[in-house]
Each structure stands twice: as structure tokens, then as C-alpha cells.
Design a protein around this nucleic acid. Structure first.
Lengths: 219, 219
DNA sequence: TAGATTGTTAATCGATTAACAATC
DNA sequence: TAGATTGTTAATCGATTAACAATC
């Protein structure tokens, strides 16, 4: 019942960004539970693991569908699969890294991306002495080839690891090429149109927001 | 006037965590303005740079004091210095890195911490073949020495770069040693008492929250 | 069936924004 | 002084939590 067309979950209600931000954490916990052999979990148990209230978990999930069973809870495999589907984690994503300096190389050699379906298939730099070199099985190409590389290799995500002064111009180029998801490692907050998503990895900002508590309040 | 004791800004009102989280970004923008030779900026201009409303900037700052001049705006040097003071950025912070694997070494060689006053003065691992080695001018010591090292070198911040399975136990040890600020690079969400601040650097989570928009909504 | 837990609505809480008197 | 912009209060907006009927 109540299956009238106007009640379909994806009709109008936009999902708040803060909810989307929590889903990957749900996925992580569900994977753990799955590998621990847990078959069913209720919102109470999930909430405990995730440090959020059970009500929030149920509310968050309700934006996407009805995945639980009253009186029982959620099937771990089922919920995991649904969330992975929703987030697009059941597919491969091709990634280009811009900037093959110290940081760029660390990113290229980081083994944590591949198991989650993020494949670094291209690396660009404008340093002539790097171009043509092979780094972690990826050939370094000039930044001018960006457009070409993105099309050729069906790339949808870019990781930016260039010096801070070049960040904005590189990101502008990425946007022009049609890239709509950017992971920025430079200590800057570049501007993008709101059709494009960007996340910045910025350890110094994280440290600086903690020293506040070391300096003041904390007895 | 209105300087009665009960109206002092730091009397009761706790500063929301979300406000503290924005201050380091304010600092960054102010530093840019300073190096561009800008002497005065109003909340309108600051808001533009930071992509927030002028009202939010004024409100945020009002938690800490009255730094502006009506009709003019804020002195860039003055405001910068005040915020650096509030965040504790005018002092040096000694940092220990736990885990000297691939990631730990990348962190040790990252040049972005030092200019902001974060000095990595110790590195710990439990791999016997690493102990005693010097990495980026820091001698690797066994994890058992943690307590000793923290005391000896007056360390207040820890960076965790151990494999995910060891994260929680390492963090428990840090908490026991009195560390109250932790930067965690492992893909996990460790539990800490709420006297301790922790921030996690997790590029995969960031990517996963963006693929949602690549998969669905984005026309 | 009785017990448990969901999905959802309504109440609460907190953060953002608007508005404006104070004042440089 | 007139004009501009702050600091702050009140209004709005949005997110979290509580509560409970629906239902497994």
C-alpha cells in the first residue's frame, strides 16, 4: 500500500549532503560486520559502531528506501549491497593524478584506492624530466594532454597534487574537460561551479583545529 | 561601556566545534591577504574569499572578541594575529608519528607541517629492521618507548599511520600517555574519550561520497 | 500471538542568515 | 557630519532526536 506514484522516495526530496557523507562510513562498518560473519544488525547496533543515534541511521536510510525488517533489523549483505549501489561503489572509477612530485608519487603508490574500485590510470605533470617516465606502472604525460587522456581512458575523477600556486588553474582545466569529482591535496580551497564536487585533504587544517582545544578549554 | 563582568565573551558560551573548524581557513585567507599587501578587509570581502556569508564571519568572530571597526572592517594583521593566538598557532607543537611504513615515511617527508609550527620530533615503529634507522633526520624508536618519548620530547600531538588493524590499540596507548590530539591516517574511525580530539584523513571516504553524485543526480 | 524494531512524523535542537542599532 | 560596517539579537532554516503506529 501507499505505493502511489507521488510517494516514491526519489521523487523530489533531495538527500542532504551530510547524509551522503555518512553513507561511506556505513558501508565501511557493514563490510566489517560482514567479514565478522554477522548476518543481521539493527539500528541500535549500527549506531553504536558508528557513534550516531539509531534514529539517525533509520532516518538516513529512509531517504533511499526501506531496507529493514520490523522486529529484526537489517540484513548486512542486503544493506551493504544497496548502499554500494547507491554510492556507485559496485563499479570501477578511472582516476587521473595531476602532479607527480613527492606527494603525487605517494598517492600513486598508495595501495588503498584500488581495492575500493578507484583505478589511477593516468598521471600528468609539466616537468619535462618526468614526462615519459613510468611511475607505479603509469606513464607520466604532459598536462597539455589532459583533455585527450580524459577521453581516451574514460576518466571521471581527478586527484590534484600540484603546488598550491597552480591549484586553481589546474582545477579550472579539469572542470573544462568535464571532470565532476576532484580530490584536492593542495592546501587551498579552490572555487568550482556547483555542478562539480570537490573534497580537500588538508592535514594542516585538521591539526590547526585541534590545537585550539590544546591551548584553551582542555583542563 | 557594557564592560560588566558578566558580559565577558569567554564566560560561559561554548564555541561550537563547527566554528573552530572554520578558523584555520580564516587564518589561511588572512595570510594570503597579508602577503598581497591588503591591510584592511571587511566581512563582505572575507566572505567572498571563503565562500561564506558576511554574517557568518561576524558571528564566528564574535565568539572570541570584537576585532573590527565599524565603518571600516578588520585590520588584516590584527585579526590574523588574534586568530593565530586563539588557535595556538604562534607556538611550536611537537609531534610523534606512529608507524614508519610507506605512509609514515611520506608523512615524515611532507614539508607542509613545519612552516605551520608542527614539528615531527619522533617516529615509532615495531618493526625491528626499522628501529635505529634515521628517517628524515628522526631516529626510529620502538613503540614501547612511547611513554618515554612523549615525556622526554614534550609531545602533545600524535599522527597515526599504522595498518588499520592496529589503529585502535595504538590510539588507546596514546590516550593513556596523555596525548589529547590525534591525526589518524588509517581508514578507520577509532573511539576516543571526549577529552581527546581526533581527526581522520581518509581519501577513500572522500572519493566515495563524491561518486554518489556521479552515479545519480548529475545530469 | 507477543515482542521487537522499523519507517516516519512531529518536536527539539542548533546553526545560519537577516536585520538593525551602535559606532567608527 | 554622512556613510559604512560592525556586533548582536531575533527570525529562519535545516538537521537531529524522540516517539509511536505499522508490521515483521
Amino acid at each position: 500500500m501507499a505505493n502511489v506514484s507521488s510517494s516514491r522516495w526519489d521523487d523530489q526530496i533531495a538527500v542532504p549532503e551530510v547524509v551522503v557523507g555518512r553513507l561511506p562510513q556505513y558501508v565501511r562498518v557493514l563490510r566489517e560486520l560482514l567479514s565478522d560473519g554477522v548476518q543481521v544488525a539493527n539500528s541500535q547496533q549500527l549506531g553504536q559502531q558508528l557513534q550516531v543515534t539509531p534514529a539517525q541511521i533509520r532516518k538516513d536510510l529512509s531517504y533511499f528506501g526501506r531496507f529493514g525488517k520490523q522486529g529484526r533489523g537489517y540484513s548486512v549483505v542486503r544493506l551493504l549491497d544497496e548502499l554500494q549501489q547507491i554510492l556507485g561503489l559496485n563499479q570501477q572509477w578511472n582516476v587521473v593524478v595531476i602532479g607527480v612530485g613527492r606527494l603525487g608519487r605517494a598517492i600513486l603508490s598508495y595501495p588503498g584506492f584500488t581495492p575500493d574500485g578507484f583505478h589511477i590510470v593516468a598521471a600528468l605533470d609539466n616537468n619535462p624530466s618526468l614526462i615519459g617516465q613510468e611511475v607505479e606502472e603509469v606513464m607520466v604525460r604532459p598536462v597539455e594532454d589532459l583533455d585527450l587522456v580524459v577521453k581516451e581512458q574514460n576518466i571521471t575523477i581527478a586527484v590534484v597534487a600540484v603546488p598550491v600556486g597552480f591549484t586553481q588553474q589546474v582545477i579550472d582545466k579539469l572542470v573544462t574537460c568535464g571532470i565532476r569529482a576532484i580530490l584536492n591535496y593542495a592546501p587551498s580551497s579552490p572555487q568550482v561551479p556547483d555542478t562539480v564536487k570537490i573534497r580537500s585533504i588538508d592535514p594542516v587544517l585538521s591539526l590547526q583545529s585541534m590545537t585550539y582545544y590544546l591551548t584553551n578549554g582542555g583542563e
